Simulated assay, not measured.
Amino acid sequence: MRALLPVVLDLVLPIGGYFLLHSGFGLSAFWSLTIAGAATGVHALVTTLRRGKVDALGVLIFLEMGLSAALLFVSGDPRIVLAKPALYLAVAAVYALVTCFTGRPLVLDSGKPFATRGDPALADAYERAWTHSDRFRRTVRGVTAVWAGAFALDAVLRVVVVYSLPPERVDESVWLSQVPLVVVFVLAVVVTRLRMRPLRPVIEAHRVAAS
Rank of each mutant, 00 (worst) to 15 (best):
L5M: 15
R137I: 02
A39R: 04
G16F: 13
T34D: 09
G41C: 05
S110D: 10
A86E: 01
G41R: 03
V81S: 13
V107P: 09
R141I: 02
E168Y: 00
H43Q: 15
A129F: 03
F114L: 14
W31S: 07
A209M: 11
T48W: 14
S177Y: 03
R104S: 14
R169G: 06
T131L: 12
E204R: 12
V7T: 13
V59N: 05
G16D: 08
L60C: 08
R200S: 13
I61E: 14
T192R: 10
L153E: 00
S110W: 09
A38Y: 07
V140C: 01
E204A: 15
D134I: 08
A121W: 06
D55Q: 05
V12Y: 03
A96N: 13
A92M: 10
G118R: 09
L187I: 14
S32K: 07
G58H: 10
S75R: 12
F101G: 11
H22R: 11
A70V: 11
F19Y: 15
A210C: 08
F30A: 02
T144I: 07
A83G: 04
V159F: 01
A36R: 02
L21C: 05
V94F: 08
T99V: 06
S28Q: 06
V183I: 15
V7L: 14
R138I: 00
I61A: 13
A83E: 01
H43F: 13
W130I: 00
F25R: 07
E64C: 10
A29L: 04
S173V: 04
S32I: 02
A90Q: 07
S75M: 07
V107K: 04
R137K: 14
Y95K: 01
A90W: 03
